[in-house]
């Protein structure tokens, strides 16, 4: 079994125009920086990107946006990106905003082979649209569908050569579910270790979900809002 690829360029091989890609991360925390950069250096366009956020103007998914490589964005919150708001209001970019928990569960369901399920979030709001509505236990729910993608790209702290992954702190976030929902899942890790060296008790994402893995380089890990106390 050989899942190890050399670098991000090799990892994103096979991604074509109009592909659907999921990206792990919350804000700029835990985003697959190397693959995002590699994608931004290609001429691939028409992408449908699924990610909780859309990066900021000059980092993360914001770079794909600025280079007009994105056709559609599926996210829950895009507030920190002015170019996003501009492309959305001008109609250049198609956008689907989904409640965060529903987005996470749709991805989890997609990865777990569940085609659809009911949740209460969004009932009576514009999220409802023409979705099927059903009452359970006296409460109204919307039918939501599982979500998968051609490629899922995640970032973990540590991974082994068979794709077992361990995330760090709140950089776990959407990476955990997104890893399960790609037809091809790519993992970039800060530290790549030999198969058999990680404690099986500590694995967050079992390697079965991961098809390609590589050790990333030069992580910037930008911080959106550095807030501190004095002592």
């Amino acid at each position: 079994m050989n899942k190890v690829v050399k670098n991000a360029n090799e990892a994103i091989e096979g991604i074509r125009d109009n592909a659907t890609i999921m990206f792990g991360g919350f804000g700029l925390c835990g985003i697959p920086e190397n693959c995002l950069k590699a994608l931004a250096e290609t001429k691939i366009k028409g992408l449908t990107c699924i990610s909780n956020n859309a990066g900021i103007d000059d980092f993360g998914l914001g770079v794909l946006l600025r280079k007009h490589q994105m056709k559609k964005m599926i996210a829950s919150y895009v507030g920190e990106n002015k170019e996003f708001e501009r492309q959305l209001l001008s109609g250049e970019l198609e956008v689907e905003l989904i409640p965060q928990g529903t987005l996470a569960e749709r991805i989890r369901a997609g990865g777990a082979g569940i085609p659809a399920f009911f949740v209460p979030a969004g009932y009576g709001t514009e999220v409802q649209g023409d979705k099927e509505v059903r009452e359970f236990n006296g409460k109204m729910h919307l039918l939501e569908k599982g979500l998968t993608a051609d490629f899922a790209i995640v970032k973990a702290k540590t991974g082994d050569t068979h794709g077992n992954l361990i995330y760090n702190k709140t950089a776990y976030n959407f990476n955990g579910v997104i890893a399960t929902a790609g037809r091809i899942t790519i993992a970039e890790v800060e530290e790549l270790v030999p198969f058999g060296t990680l404690d099986p008790n500590h694995i967050h994402t079992p390697g079965i979900f991961v098809q390609r893995i590589f050790q990333g380089t030069n992580y910037e890990k930008r911080i959106e809002f550095a807030t501190t106390r004095d002592k």
């Binding site: 919350f26 804000g27 700029l28 925390c29 835990g30 909780n52 920190e80 965060q100 928990g101 529903t102 987005l103 996470a104 569960e105 991805i107 989890r108 702290k157 995330y167 760090n168 702190k169 709140t170 950089a171 776990y172 976030n173 959407f174 990476n175 955990g176 579910v177 967050h204 890990k221 930008r222 911080i223 959106e224 809002f225 550095a226 807030t227 501190t228």
Partner: peptide, 29 residues
């Protein structure tokens, strides 16, 4: 103490108390 891998939902840097737990977004919701 700032750690870019440790933020809150407002994307501010934070700390975790001793005894804290981390989990993924689907578990959170």
């Amino acid at each position: 103490e700032i750690d870019p891998d440790l933020i809150n939902a407002g994307k501010q840097t934070i700390t975790a108390i001793p005894g804290a737990a981390f989990f993924d977004s689907s578990n959170s919701f």
